[in-house]
């Protein structure tokens, strides 16, 4: 027990004193995961709208398929991205493996299903009366889409935040395509994994506390959004 307490106290000291290593790793985690979620949102939100508003054969199957990939294991995405980006692979020429760019790319792949699927369900949950009313008032398809999107904005935001939560907390992918290179691709989860393996628990605990704090902030925001 004393080991845990001492570790916790040292961990809190590391956070309070803004230890450069802890801050650097936490900052890198945030940048990579914010970047991957924002980049994925840029094309997932319009694409989700397209899936919702268009009628096409196999639509239900496509949505089921997207939902299946909500829980795709991060190591499987890691493996896919590794095979793609490895110098012997099809995108090897880009020389991206073991860079933050590879991690952002991997996390984008990871969160695309969540963003797409939740955008579609956010749009579906908008009261049918709203687009009907808009149409009866003479709105064009584009105008109807804008009205529905506006109604669904909180649910869509919640989707982005959930995606961010998945991205920042995963470890398998970050380790496989980032390589956990100190000062370059080491993020909170991979650092925790390494430091625990090395038996240095303080740094692990400090980063773990920061991760939990981030989860807490995300939850507070989610709750606020859902109360609207």
């Amino acid at each position: 027990m004393t080991e845990i307490w001492q570790g916790l106290i040292k961990a809190i000291q590391l956070i309070v004193s803004l230890d450069p290593e802890v801050m650097e790793i936490a900052g890198r985690s945030l940048i990579i995961s914010v970047a991957s979620c924002l980049l994925a949102s840029v094309f997932c939100l319009p694409l989700g709208g397209l899936i919702h508003f268009q009628r096409f054969p196999g639509k239900r199957t496509l949505i089921s398929l997207i939902q299946t990939f909500y829980s795709i294991p991060t190591v499987v995405v890691g493996l896919l991205v590794f095979v793609l980006l490895s110098r012997a692979g099809p995108l090897g020429g880009l020389n991206l493996l073991y860079t933050p760019a590879a991690m952002i790319f991997g996390q984008m792949v990871l969160v695309v299903p969540i963003l797409l699927g939740l955008t579609v369900s956010a749009l579906s949950s908008v009261d049918k009366a709203i687009p009907d009313t808009a149409r009866s008032l003479g709105a064009s398809s584009l105008q109807i889409a804008v009205v529905v999107l506006k109604e669904a904005r909180f649910a869509v935001m919640a989707a982005i935040i959930l995606a961010f939560g998945r991205a920042i907390s995963e470890v398998g992918l970050a380790l496989m395509v980032g390589g956990n290179i100190r000062g370059f691709t080491r993020v909170m989860t991979t650092a925790i994994s390494l430091e625990t393996a090395k038996g240095d628990l303080e740094l692990s605990l400090a980063l773990g506390i920061i991760l939990i704090l981030i989860a807490l902030i995300i939850n507070i925001i989610l709750n606020r959004i859902q109360q609207r």
Partner: peptide
Amino acid sequence: MKKVTCYLLSILLLLSLVGSIFGCTSSGTV
């Protein structure tokens, strides 16, 4: 609505600011 957006944006901004100060070595992508 505006309040939430402001709240969200400021947090995102803050987070990325913290990141850009301490995580400058990760700027391989930035």
